[in-house]
C-alpha cells in the first residue's frame, strides 16, 4: 500500500473509530452498571442528531406530521450540539424512569430488559418517522464555520494526502470527550460512586450510595454520549432518516464486545480497532466493509469472550 493512501486510511479510520468509541461508551456505561444492553441507544443517537439539526435552525423537509417545521431561531452550532446532546441525555433519563426502572423494581430477568430496550427502540424510531418523516436531512456543509477548510492536505503538493476537515474535528472532539469521561470516572467522587455501583449495586447501596440516582445519571450520560456521536456522524454524512442509528447501534455492540463488555478503556480501543479495520478494507472488497465489525465480533467471542481488555469472569457455584 502506498504511504499516502495508508496515512489517509489511518486518519479516516481513527476519525470514524473515535465516534464508534464515544457511542459505544454509552452502551458500556449502562452495561457496566446494570448488566443489560440497551438497544434503544441507537435510537437516542438518531434523536441527538435530530435535536441538533433543529436547534441550529434547520427546517424539516421530511413528510412527517411536523413537515416544514423549523424553530424560529437558530443557535450557534457548538451550543446547539451541547443542548442537543443534553436533550438526548434527557431522553435517556425518561427511558429509565418510564421503562427500565419499573422493570428493575420487579426484579425481572436481564433478558427481558433486552426485549424492553428493543421495544423502546422500535417506539422511538417510528415516533421519529411519524413526526419527521423518512427523508434525509443534511447539515449545511459549513456547519463548523467557514474557517474549517473542506479538506486538509497532510502530504506535500506533489503527493497530496487530503483528509476532510470534518474528520479532524470529529476525532478531536471525540478524544476530548473520552479524556473528560475517563477523568470523571477515575478522578471524581461521582466516578468513584459509579464504579462502586458497577462493582456491586447492593453493597454500594448499603454503604450509603443512592444507587437509583447513579443509575439515572448513567442513563443521562449514556444518552448524552449517544446524542453527541449522532450529531458528529450526521455532520460528516447526513441524517439518513429515523433508521440512521440502527447500523451504528449494531456496530456499537461489536465495539463493546471487542473491547470487553462494560470496560471503559476497552470501548475506546474497540472503537478505534473497528474504525481502522473498516478503513483498511481494500477497495475491491468495500462491499464487505459492513461485515468487518461483525466478523471481528464473532472471532473475538470465540477466541477471547472477555474482550481485548476485559477481565475473565470466573463462574462461581
Amino acid at each position: 500500500m502506498e504511504l499516502g493512501t495508508f496515512i489517509q486510511s489511518l486518519l479516516n479510520g481513527l476519525s470514524i473509530g473515535s465516534v464508534y468509541a464515544i457511542f459505544a461508551l454509552g452502551y458500556t456505561l449502562i452495561f457496566s452498571i446494570l448488566g443489560i444492553i440497551n438497544f434503544a441507544h441507537g435510537a437516542v443517537f438518531t434523536l441527538g442528531a435530530y435535536f441538533t439539526y433543529f436547534l441550529i435552525g434547520g427546517v424539516n423537509n421530511g413528510t412527517g406530521v411536523l413537515t416544514n417545521l423549523g424553530l424560529p431561531f437558530g443557535l450557534p452550532f457548538v451550543l446547539a450540539t451541547l443542548l442537543g446532546s443534553l436533550l438526548a441525555g434527557g431522553v435517556g433519563v425518561i427511558l429509565d424512569r418510564m421503562a427500565f426502572r419499573p422493570l428493575r423494581a420487579r426484579g425481572a430477568d436481564p433478558l427481558l430488559a433486552l426485549v424492553l430496550s428493543l421495544g423502546l427502540a422500535l417506539l422511538l424510531v417510528n415516533l421519529a418517522q411519524y413526526l419527521i418523516g423518512a427523508e434525509i436531512l443534511s447539515f449545511p456543509s459549513n456547519v463548523y464555520g467557514d474557517w474549517l477548510p473542506p479538506a486538509i492536505n497532510f502530504g506535500s503538493t506533489e503527493n497530496p494526502i487530503p483528509v476532510r476537515g470534518v474528520q479532524i474535528i470529529i476525532f478531536t472532539v471525540s478524544m476530548f470527550v473520552v479524556v473528560i469521561l475517563t477523568l470523571l470516572i477515575n478522578r471524581t467522587k461521582i466516578g468513584k460512586a459509579l464504579r462502586a455501583v458497577a462493582e456491586n449495586a447492593t453493597t454500594a447501596n448499603l454503604l450509603g450510595i443512592s444507587t437509583e440516582r447513579f443509575i439515572l445519571f448513567t442513563f443521562f450520560l449514556s444518552g448524552f454520549l449517544g446524542g453527541l456521536a449522532g450529531t458528529l456522524v450526521a455532520t460528516s454524512f447526513s441524517i439518513s432518516g429515523p433508521y440512521f442509528g440502527v447500523t451504528y447501534g449494531l456496530k456499537g455492540l461489536a465495539v463493546i464486545v471487542l473491547g470487553g463488555l462494560g470496560d471503559i478503556p476497552g470501548a475506546v480501543v474497540g472503537g478505534l480497532v473497528i474504525g481502522l479495520a473498516e478503513a483498511f478494507v481494500p477497495g475491491d472488497f468495500s462491499a464487505y466493509k459492513e461485515a468487518v465489525a461483525f466478523a471481528l465480533l464473532f472471532v473475538i467471542l470465540l477466541v477471547r469472550p472477555q474482550g481485548l481488555l476485559g477481565r475473565k469472569v470466573i463462574q462461581k457455584v
Binding site: V257, A291, L297, F298
Partner: peptide
C-alpha cells in the same frame, strides 16, 4: 459458539446473521 453464555451467545448469533446478510 455454544461455549458462550447468555448475552454473549445472543451477540455472536447477531453477528452471524449480519455476516450472512452482507454476504
Amino acid at each position: 459458539a455454544l461455549r458462550l453464555k447468555g448475552i454473549y451467545l445472543a451477540l455472536a448469533t447477531i453477528a452471524f446473521v449480519e455476516i450472512l446478510r452482507v454476504v
